[in-house]
Design a protein around this nucleic acid. Structure first.
Length: 253
DNA sequence: GGCCAGGAGGCCT
DNA sequence: AGGCCTCATGGC
């Protein structure tokens, strides 16, 4: 049994993860404490033998069914899927995702990625090859707001301090339903509805979550005025990713 | 090409 | 409703 083909570039660089880099044909990242490297040819075999990565790339989910259903809903979404077919919703480590999206507010992908790497280089365990794991909460315990500001986090620095302090929340959220989990995540300073939604979608497999950022608001206003995102049920999250990536790509981003 | 100014994939008070 | 760190971006 082979899953549907993964659109690696779209999946890794559509804004759900900031851990990946691409050099030539090689994709590389330190995720969940491990250095991962592959290219288009080697990924399928890697997913066969590496359970963690198989889960990370959400291999068990039926993307063909989801894409088929969403495409049948309306022509515009169908065009988005047609252009970027193969986007997967990653199952990322909750802590890495939480920090990523705290950093993401009022920020560009370029700078988010740079800040993310600065945290890894500053506080993460060396993995060789001059790569570093992303630091776990305990490794950031005691790091001050000033230290984070020095890295360039700006006003997000105190948010990260608070996230470190409350990181236990991430172990509790998984057991709760969407609504309760979102409320809990929002107890972390700097985590509002949008950031919390991204954490739920990209780390806890909550595929019915539909994160509403300014891009999606604009898209909804233009193409789906007065429409509730539940029209995309039960694949709201995937629909959001296709809409988002399609329009961002066209905007030249 | 270099320089400057307003905005940026939200959140908090 | 406004401010926030910093800087990538677009306009000149």
């Amino acid at each position: 049994m082979t899953g549907s083909r993964i659109n690696i570039d779209a999946t890794l660089f559509c804004g759900q993860s900031f851990a990946w880099s691409r050099e030539g044909d090689t994709y590389q990242a330190a995720i969940d404490g491990r250095l991962i490297s592959f290219d288009e040819q080697t990924l399928p075999a890697l997913l066969e033998r590496d359970q963690y990565l198989a889960h990370y790339f959400d291999s068990a989910f039926d993307y063909e069914a989801a894409e088929g259903h969403l495409s049948s809903l309306d022509p515009h979404l169908g065009a988005c899927i047609e252009e970027h077919r193969g986007i997967r919703i990653l199952n990322q480590d909750p802590w890495e995702t939480t920090v990523s999206f705290i950093l993401s507010q009022n920020n560009s992908i370029t700078r988010i990625t740079r800040l993310y790497r600065a945290l890894a280089e500053g506080y993460g365990r060396p993995l060789g090859n001059s790569c570093h794991a992303f630091p776990r909460p305990r490794e950031l315990d005691g790091v001050s707001e000033g230290d984070f500001r020095a890295l360039g986090l700006g006003y997000r620095a105190p948010y990260l301090v608070d996230a470190v302090k409350k990181s236990e929340i991430l172990n509790e959220a998984g057991a709760l339903d969407n609504r309760a989990a979102l409320s809990l995540l929002m107890e972390i300073k700097g985590v509002g509805e949008k950031v919390g939604s991204c954490i739920l979608l990209f780390s806890y497999g909550r595929k019915r979550i539909f994160p509403m950022d300014v891009w999606i608001k604009r898209i909804m206003a233009e193409y789906y005025q007065g429409v509730d995102p539940s029209i995309f049920a039960p694949y709201e999250g995937l629909a959001q990713q296709y809409l988002f990536h399609y329009h961002r790509s066209r905007a030249g981003g």
